[in-house]
């Protein structure tokens, strides 16, 4: 059983990394968007191996199912020509990119190394319903411990929706 989950992890982790690379390497925006969907699906499979079923499914419903459909919708509507127009390159930014990439890599190394030293906390023993990442545990913590941040976030999203409607509205409508 242990072996099986390791194999599953390796397969989907590789799929996630490769498709994430493909997002950057593809010229065609539609292919990039499709690669992003593959990345999201592989991540969802990884969540499943951690028994976070609710998060795994929500990952697909929200990101792969709703947000990416809108992305693809827009790409198809704009119908980007196959030959990409050359983006005007700003020389200064290119030199700035090297130190930033260095900082990012150093940061990643720092995080990975500090994780390696730590021992993982043992998985809390409990009933299946109490495990982290199930519908029950997320629902309970959202509506008790994190009620205020949850409500504030929903107000924030409401503001974004109203803002989008105001911006999209044509004059004289």
């Amino acid at each position: 059983m242990e072996k099986a989950s390791t194999i599953i992890f390796i397969v989907f982790a590789a799929a996630a990394v490769l498709s994430a690379l493909n997002i950057l390497l593809q010229r065609n925006p539609l292919y990039s968007a499709l690669s992003l969907i593959v990345t999201l699906l592989s991540l969802s499979a990884l969540y499943l191996t951690l028994h976070a079923e609710f998060i795994a499914v929500i990952q697909i419903v929200v990101y792969a199912g709703a947000i990416m459909v809108l992305f693809i919708f827009v790409i198809m509507l704009l119908n980007v020509p196959a030959v990409q127009p050359q983006i005007e390159k700003q020389k200064g930014l290119r030199y700035l990119a090297i130190p930033f990439a260095g900082i990012l890599i150093a940061e990643t190394f720092y995080v990975v190394l500090s994780i390696g030293k730590r021992t993982m906390p043992s998985v809390p023993v409990g009933t299946e319903a109490q495990a982290v990442g199930t519908t029950w545990s997320i629902g309970t913590s959202l509506f008790t411990d994190y009620l205020l941040p949850f409500e504030v976030t929903s107000v924030l999203i409401l503001m974004a929706v109203v803002g989008a409607m105001v911006l999209a509205r044509r004059e004289g409508d």
Binding site: F54, V57, I58, I60, G65, A66, V69, W136
Partner: peptide, 15 residues
């Protein structure tokens, strides 16, 4: 324990 959401996830991918 997420059976119903699983179906929703699949229908949203089916599009």
């Amino acid at each position: 324990n997420v059976g119903l959401l699983y179906i929703f996830a699949l229908t949203s991918v089916g599009v």
